[in-house]
Design a protein around this nucleic acid. Structure first.
Lengths: 127, 127
DNA sequence: CCATGAAGCCTTGCAGTTCGAGGCATGAGG
DNA sequence: CCTCATGCCTCGAACTGCAAGGCTTCATGG
């Protein structure tokens, strides 16, 4: 099977924050779990390491987008559970708009992304 | 008219190369003109400076994606005219795929960009 | 003649981001 | 005891956009 190409190294630049905000908007979560959730949902296109995500979470907490609390999970293990703050929710909105803006620009200049033209389903691979 | 918010500072990260490839795929052009073309076509969302674009062009030329030639334009002025190389054309393809991949990931996790939800046409502004 | 502004090109330094490598601790299962 | 998965963290390298600044030529107006 023609494996979908992974995203380029810097393809994600600036988007990880948005992704985290979106996932946390569905409910609280801890770092390690968030990494897995993102990687799984991306259907193989993403393979983030923890070393990539943790600094982002710290930055976001520092900016007041997130609140963190230590919780003892089901396993009796200590986890740092992050929760979206009101400010974070607002940020998610503006991030969504900026993303829409980028899509708009790319559509105009690079051309729209055709249906079924994603790496998951490249043209000519399906017959 | 309700002006659409400009893109965030780093929103473009990594995409300028793609934009340039796409524009040059339509025909050769020189730096200064390319900057204007991009800014105009973006309908106000982009406002790139030359200091941003020139280094990218140099990098791309160095990588063999572009070929450059000094030409005397209509005004009798010297211009450095860039032209897409075969390698550049291939790169454009992979860039398009990666972009499609990113769109796919963002769709899955952040949610799809609704029609007319771009900063150019925000919801609730159109009647 | 001189000033101004637009067309054109360029470089340098700063700041922000991802990523890989690496390190530390706990609990479960062999 | 050892190893693997969970779970957290930090550091340095590499890349990128951006602002600021500088250079030259041509056309226009005073």
């Amino acid at each position: 099977m023609l494996r979908g190409m992974k995203l380029g190294k810097r393809e994600l630049d600036g988007k990880i924050e948005t992704l985290l905000l979106a996932v946390l908007a569905e409910g609280p979560g801890h770092g390690y779990g968030l990494v897995q959730k993102l990687n799984e949902r991306s259907a193989g296109l993403l393979s983030l390491g923890e070393g990539t995500v943790y600094p982002v979470l710290h930055r976001m907490e520092e900016q007041g987008l997130l609140t963190a609390a230590w919780r003892t999970g089901d396993t009796g293990r200590q986890r740092k559970v992050y929760r979206l703050s009101p400010k974070g929710r607002r940020r998610l909105n503006t991030q969504r708009q900026q993303w829409a803006g980028l899509v708009s620009v790319m559509d105009k200049i690079v051309g729209p992304v055709a249906e079924g033209d994603s790496p998951l389903n490249p043209r000519g691979a399906t017959a």
